[in-house]
Design a protein around this nucleic acid. Structure first.
Lengths: 212, 212
DNA sequence: CTTCTTTCTAAACGTATGTTTTAAACGATA
DNA sequence: TATCGTTTAAAACATACGTTTAGAAAGAAG
């Protein structure tokens, strides 16, 4: 009853890899199924065979790594919480924002495993028609919800409304950096050069910490 | 030699109005010429007649109000500079950021004149293929360049690199708010409700000031 | 009215799109 | 080897796309 599917698995994964990259660089409508299949060296009908439809492919690209990144974020959060408890203090704003921003920014620099493509894909998916991609939004929202109580704890004077607004701004800093990191040299007339992922992350964390 | 063109002007403007809105809500590729023309109640060929091509229409939408907003920004900058000179001090960070953010955010709330559509159109145009829309980017970049010396003056310890990174983050806060203002209620589980344009602007300015 | 330019309309062109269909090729099991 | 589920392949389908064309309608100028 068990079939090897070795070639099939490869084709399926190859399609996912390729479309992740293509959807990261262009909108859903601007990337055609034919572009995907020819780039992945598979037959045209493979997309519909494996994913039912173009939209199905898009969602499959999203789902493939959806849980992974948020797991990383929650992992960092847990780690910070544990360390703070051990030292008998509450989690700092810096630790919280660090946990929110480190995974996506580190992924952004991880060209090799395709994580960079996924993170850019995600940032773009946010701008696709809301009706089709509500799950994309809600998943990340759910994770950020878990951060709210800690923000409240470290700064009780802030209302829940204030906190969500600040989280919203942090997401802005994050998404914009993901979308335009490669153009920051152009923006600054080469005043800003390529940095390590840590340097970029630290710049963002510093900016957002003060904003909070 | 002079022709009235009254109906023509109306049709042309109507096309621009409609496509501004449509391009604000969907990507370039996802908005078809037929959708535009039928929404504008004009003949299908009107787009090619007036603008040469679909891309020509897109750029026309951009150009129509491009100078206006940056004029507003520079006006606010000049005003702040004049006031500061009169009071014998240098321009504050708050005044600078205020001049950068007030025009786009106020426009965002200006549903009536279509300015809201334009500002959302602009934010989306940033994500279109860079090769086609480089002028969109460069125009705003040119304006922000004019702010750099003042940021340096008020905070001489910052390098040009630092300043551009912060401007980049401010643009992130701005773009994200433009793109997702209507979804902030969803993000916050209705903790955040609709605010006045001044309230939203002040939140953004406050966050970015501290970040700077 | 006639003339000429501009604007609008309807139809068609050629191509690109997502999807479906048909059958061949493959791989493991029996 | 024969069988059956799975995967690949080629072709066709129907539709949607951006663009072009040819001509009608409208309006100002002579």
């Amino acid at each position: 009853m068990k079939y090897k599917k070795s070639a099939g698995q490869n084709a399926k994964e190859r399609i996912l890899d390729v479309s992740e990259k293509l959807f990261a660089e262009g909108s859903f409508a601007s990337v055609s199924v034919r572009t995907v299949t020819s780039a992945a060296n598979v037959n045209l009908s493979a997309v519909n065979y494996y994913f039912g439809s173009k939209k199905g492919l898009f969602q499959a690209v999203y789902i493939r790594r959806a849980t992974l990144m948020n797991h990383e974020r929650l992992g960092l959060l847990q780690k910070a919480v544990g360390k703070a408890q051990q030292e008998g203090r509450s989690v700092s704003v810096r630790e919280l924002i660090n946990a929110m921003l480190t995974p996506p920014i580190f992924w952004l620099y991880e060209e090799e495993k395709g994580l960079s493509g996924y993170i850019r894909f995600l940032a773009r998916a946010y701008l696709e028609a809301a009706s089709d991609m509500e799950n994309v939004l809600s998943q990340e929202v759910d994770v950020f919800d878990k951060f709210v109580p800690y923000f409240q704890e470290v700064n009780p004077s802030l209302s829940v409304e204030d906190i969500y607004w600040r989280i919203h701004f942090i997401m802005g800093v994050m998404h914009h950096t993901i979308n335009h990191l490669d153009r920051i040299g152009l923006l600054s007339h080469t005043a800003c050069s390529v940095e390590t992922r840590e340097q970029t992350r630290d710049r963002m964390v510093a900016f957002c910490c003060e904003g909070f």
